[in-house]
């Protein structure tokens, strides 16, 4: 039951967000939050479907922090990369748009992949059509599409595949 999974995931994420934003465990706040969350989950069936792409298993739970670590590391790297390019007087860029492929199936997986690519060194997802991503690349290397896929997508995809479908 795909939809049931999405409902559960969304309930959990919303509950966590509510606890974070009210930063209190007073009974009144908990009740108000519970009512709000149930109403939201009931009304947003398309968001429920989207979050159905999450894998709910022990392995997925284990890989989530790993993925976050990879993501954070790439984000820091990308900032150093941008800083280096901006501070070099000759502005060493070699931009272009490349088309890369992903093996991820679920919309949620593709969304997270697109966001991750946007925040990694020198790449920015412009659009996704089916299983191909159009990525703006600050420093295009070579002309081979497979090589581009390898260097842009593959790093995230392997970890992400354990977390989403």
């Amino acid at each position: 039951m795909r939809n049931w999974k999405g409902t559960f995931a969304l309930l959990f994420l919303l509950a966590a967000s509510w606890l974070l934003i009210v930063s209190s465990v007073a009974l009144v706040e908990l009740i108000a939050g519970a009512v709000a969350i149930v109403v939201i989950v009931l009304l947003t069936h398309r968001s429920r479907d989207l979050f159905g792409g999450l894998r709910l298993s022990l392995k997925a739970l284990l890989f989530t922090p790993i993925y976050l670590m990879v993501f954070l590391w790439q984000l820091i790297r990308s900032n150093l990369d941008i800083a280096r390019r901006v501070l070099t007087p000759s502005l060493p860029i070699n931009p272009g748009i490349v088309k890369v492929q992903t093996q991820l199936q679920s919309p949620l997986g593709k969304l997270i992949l697109a966001n991750s690519i946007t925040l990694t060194p020198g790449t920015l997802t412009l659009d996704i059509e089916g299983s191909s991503l159009y990525v703006h690349w600050v420093d295009v290397k070579g002309t081979d599409a497979d090589a581009a896929t390898q260097s842009i997508v593959a790093g995230f995809e392997r970890t992400l595949m354990e977390v989403v479908e």
């Binding site: 984000l75 900032n79 941008i82 920015l124």
Partner: peptide
């Protein structure tokens, strides 16, 4: 540095790159 990137980069796509990553 992101602000500097916004000024120095040549087109809107490269500026987006600098802007997004640095400000995030």
């Amino acid at each position: 540095l992101g602000g500097l990137g916004l000024i120095r980069m040549p087109d809107v796509y490269n500026r987006l790159q600098a802007g997004t990553k640095a400000t995030t």
